[in-house]
Design a protein around this nucleic acid. Structure first.
Lengths: 137, 137
DNA sequence: AATATACACTTGCTTTTAGCAAGTAAAATT
DNA sequence: AATTTTACTTGCTAAAAGCAAGTGTATATT
């Protein structure tokens, strides 16, 4: 978060979470990294929700400073930067999956594939470990 | 959320969640209702984070409109209003618990009691059902 | 080698939202 | 009847978001 007021909100776990990733754009960036395989600046831009370039830049800096994502120079194209989730960021997956489970119930227009939600509800841990593979390379 | 731009963000589950409860004050109100037993306007005010009266009023209206909380006149004092989580709101508990689990790991100043986190990690479903009792009366 | 293009921001400006203090109205207490 | 409590509402200021255009560096094209 950019909000100076809440930067040091530790103590309460919910408040701490909010101070670390508690705004809609941060959640969407985490989603992109965690489930959509997006890793580059322009990929976040093209995600569809229409984030502004300056806001994206700020969120990426914040999330990196909070240790949730990391920025590295791309191994192939050395001029590009690759973003990825840190261990700390990856560990947000259970929370994200719980949110998706909830949203599937209450959003009549949900895009969550039925196969995904079935796997999530049958064996969330197996799904989590499976998704994890794509994040660690 | 108050943001007119994201009011109808359905489809993507994360985006949908953000449009329904995706700001720090909403999360804190849900926390208060879910884990702290707070149910009255003034109790949210006194929660400690220092929410402004106008912002609280707006968030309560938004959360009610989104069907996450409900406002009723207090049975004892008929002039007062009691807020409570709806079924839809209660079902956010797994997400909230996952967030708490995460925060306990990464916040060095966490206030999450060790007994709570032990129960959460050992048998989250049992803890959830236990917490549920306090919400349904 | 020079020009063009892509990429990742940065800057300046406008609009929106948050935050703060004071005010209001209805009900409850004294 | 007067005061206090409760739950907002209003008006103003400050902060953040949003938008369009610009900048600098590296790669690609001619």
């Amino acid at each position: 978060m950019v909000d100076e007021r809440t930067k040091d909100w530790s103590g309460c776990p919910v408040r701490f979470g909010m101070s670390q990733f508690g705004d809609k754009w941060s959640f969407l960036i985490i989603r992109d990294l965690m489930f959509k395989g997006r890793r580059y600046n322009h990929e976040f831009m093209e995600a569809g929700e229409g984030i502004s370039t300056n806001i994206l830049a700020r969120r990426l800096v914040d999330l990196e400073r909070n240790g949730i994502i990391q920025k590295k120079t791309d191994l192939v194209k050395k001029s590009k930067f690759v973003y990825s989730l840190t261990e700390k960021g990856i560990e947000l997956m259970p929370m994200m999956l719980a949110m998706m489970d909830w949203a599937e119930k209450y959003d009549p227009n949900t895009e969550v594939p039925e196969s995904f939600i079935k796997r999530l509800r049958k064996d969330p841990e197996a799904l989590r470990l499976d998704l994890l593979k794509d994040l660690q390379e």
